[in-house]
């Protein structure tokens, strides 16, 4: 129970990741798959952001710029957050591409249910 609470950020990200993975693999509707993919990516963003956190630390903006040495324990690690800015851009781009392709699929087959699309392909 101790480790469950102490490492709750990891549990949350694992849970979210599984939800996303489940939706991507098990859902029949293409938009639901895309949403699953987005949840999956968000889980990883949460993971990264949480590893930058420190107990009792504040946002990484220097409070006393005249200080000679920066005491790193006072600030959260900004690097994972910066990395995630890039990852968010990537995930938005992926989401956009995936949705636009889902739109084309809908124009082509008139449905977003994977089984119905496959039936139509088999029928051809």
């Amino acid at each position: 129970m101790e480790t469950l609470i102490a490492k709750y950020n990891y549990w949350i990200y694992t849970l979210l990741m599984m939800v996303g993975l489940y939706a991507m693999l098990a859902k029949n509707n293409l938009v639901k798959k895309v949403i699953g993919m987005s949840i999956f990516q968000t889980a990883i963003i949460i993971f990264y952001v949480s590893i930058g956190a420190k107990e009792g630390a504040t946002i990484p903006i220097l409070m006393h710029s005249h200080e000679e040495t920066v005491r790193t324990v006072e600030y959260v690690n900004p690097l994972p957050h910066v990395l995630m800015l890039t990852a968010i851009v990537v995930s938005v781009a992926t989401l956009g591409v995936a949705l636009s392709i889902a739109l084309r699929i809908h124009q082509e087959y008139g449905t977003l249910e994977e089984e119905e699309i496959l039936d139509q392909i088999q029928g051809l």
């Binding site: 993975l21 991507m24 293409l30 798959k33 993919m37 999956f40 990516q41 990883i44 993971f47 990264y48 590893i51 994972p80 990852a87 990537v90 992926t94 591409v97 995936a98 392709i101 889902a102 084309r104 699929i105 082509e108 699309i117 392909i121």
Partner: peptide, 28 residues
Amino acid sequence: RAFLASFNYIIMGTVGACFYLLGVGHLY
């Protein structure tokens, strides 16, 4: 069929890239 093929590739490709990213996170 290119659309559906591309869609499945997106799902698989994104899972692949995310696993890579997660691995790099663990190294970090």
